[in-house]
Write a protein that binds this DNA or RNA. Structure first.
Lengths: 336, 336
DNA sequence: TTGTACGCGTTATCAA
DNA sequence: TTGATAACGCGTACAA
């Protein structure tokens, strides 16, 4: 049996109310009494039961993060930011890892109800027409990271401008046939960041007056295998591209792998640029469009705390800028 | 106000006891009553409050993981296993990220008391002389992953044999001067896996009758910068090594980076082998000693569930084998 | 300034 | 098979 507030009160010769007041240093307690109680607390090694506390206050001091594929590089970087920010805050973080549709709807249905988290960060997932009203009705403070909804405070990068920058930089280097490997937008996860990136690509082509060759645009899964497969297909074309822009670094790494298999040198034979700026891209010296991933995590927590402090705060849309990092995988085309 | 068991009972015209029995399908409830209650539950969209439930059952359905630097590659891989295993179990996972000594002792002191987690996985950290009895006294079911203590069920790889394999393979390729970059063992984290690896290295040298040159053994932080710095130092030696074994893949990547800066070709001029087998090692085609990291996470949860089911289960030591993966960074030395 | 009684929402006990 | 009632451990009016 763990020791309770009653044990403390009895040993200190006071009422439980006083002990409670000392713990929460709320109201006025006479200094001598406070010290007496504090001493007993230390002696007995008493720690208030957070569960019982939650019963009354409704506060759990727990935040939840709903995140797809927690171990993909992108998620890890965001998680780093979340974890950093939370460690200063005397909150705990529970992870809801979404790997499939079943998990997705389970969490979306359950979380608003079960009161175990005070606030929710949703990463890379957009609540749908059914989930949105549920969440709103429950009043659970929610922040979206890498996803946008008009109903929730959302943190996104300027995907359009990022993609535009990437393709424009390739064009400026002299590339004309540029492959674009985008990620799937349907299915469980509705990563519709892909749409903005597509528009950015089109804009860059349009500005340069380059005709759009639909053969150069492929859609694959957001993984290495997807990048590899798409690259193999692109390079088999009668007129293969001299550069490839992938919608994620992970896909871009697949591009690199495919190029190596085909004995192509990067960037001499093929320029490659990714999107995200995960740690791995630095190690591989992959050119990329960097998102402030860690910062997005930190800012997500900060915004959530603001909502917690002021539940009626209207949703904001916060748009962060990307940074084009030209490293060793992009160069002028080898025009022979 | 959320709806409670009383609302359900009233609308269904039964007592709360009956509703409770239906929810927990415990005792016998007349079929017609059950259906009636179930119907009301569905209509009212009633979800039992887990907090109140925990008050009485003492079960939180939450497991904790105490993990240093949750975003280092090693931790991420273990985390993947934990998350996978837990997703089948109707448990939640809360992460306690240990970045410094303060956090370490905070969590070690708090967790056993605060009842919020039913069980604890501790990764890469060994409870010390003070923490161990606290943990034991609290009765919190605990499993150590990548750490060993006789007092807790522990999952470790055979670090000695893994290191032995790595160095032996280099010797067999013809290397005689082999640098060994080990990781620090003091400080907050007491990663004393390093000691076993050191012994394994010595054994391999001893078996081959190679004299130990202390200049070739360096100790650095467990990160890229550490690997880089150590490599630069090793290669400046009058007789530089022809191969380097790093105690972690991350350090080995630092070795690769340093080699590239110095315009050395790997593996022609320098063989490199790491330890861990993180995903990154595959992408970089780094030779390494692979630990079953994900499996360690999964097994950790499985063992924890066993202890939860049978709290008196004596601690076990589970030793997993490493696998030597010879990829593209190791070859015979270039003897000129 | 301090102590007592009540309530948070549930499960467990016991009598009916 | 069921309903009433007592815990679980705490915070907080309210009275003293």
């Amino acid at each position: 049996m763990a020791i309770t507030i009653y044990d403390v009160a009895r040993t200190a010769g006071v009422g439980i109310g006083t002990v409670s007041r000392v713990i929460n240093n709320n109201a006025a307690v006479k200094e001598t009494t406070r010290e007496k109680v504090l001493k007993v607390i230390a002696e007995l090694n008493y720690v208030p039961d957070p569960i019982a506390r939650t019963m009354i206050t409704r506060r759990t001091r727990v935040l939840g993060v709903l995140i797809p594929f927690v171990t993909r590089a992108f998620s890890v970087e965001v998680l780093r930011g979340l974890v950093n920010a939370i460690s200063m805050l005397d909150y705990e973080l529970v992870i809801y890892n979404v790997e499939d549709n079943e998990k997705r709807s389970k969490y979306f249905n359950l979380l608003p109800m079960h009161r175990r988290v005070e606030g929710l960060i949703i990463v890379s997932l957009m609540p749908d027409e059914e989930e949105t009203p549920n969440l709103l009705k429950s009043g659970l403070p929610t922040v979206l990271v890498d996803a946008y909804s008009p109903f929730f405070t959302s943190l996104v990068v300027n995907n359009l401008e990022g993609a535009h920058q990437a393709v424009k930089s390739l064009i400026q280097k002299g590339h004309r046939r540029i492959g674009f490997i985008n990620g799937v937008t349907e299915g469980t996860f509705k990563f519709n960041q892909a749409n903005d990136r597509l528009i950015g690509v089109h804009r860059a082509f349009g500005e340069a007056g380059i005709v759009y060759d639909p053969q150069l645009m492929l859609i694959t899964e957001w993984d290495r295998a997807g990048g590899r497969a798409a690259t193999e297909q692109l390079l088999k074309l009668p007129e293969p591209p001299t550069a490839i822009f992938a919608a994620s670094d992970i896909q871009a790494i697949g591009v690199l792998e495919a190029a190596r298999r085909l004995n192509l040198n990067v960037p001499e034979d093929l320029s490659v640029i990714g999107f995200d700026g995960i740690e791995l891209s630095e190690i591989l010296e992959l050119s990329t469009v960097q998102q402030p991933l860690q910062q997005m995590g930190e800012l997500g927590i900060a915004k959530l705390m603001e909502i917690l402090a002021n539940p009626n705060k209207p949703p904001e849309l916060i748009r962060l800028d990307t940074v084009l990092l030209e490293r060793r995988t992009t160069a002028a085309p080898n025009l022979t």
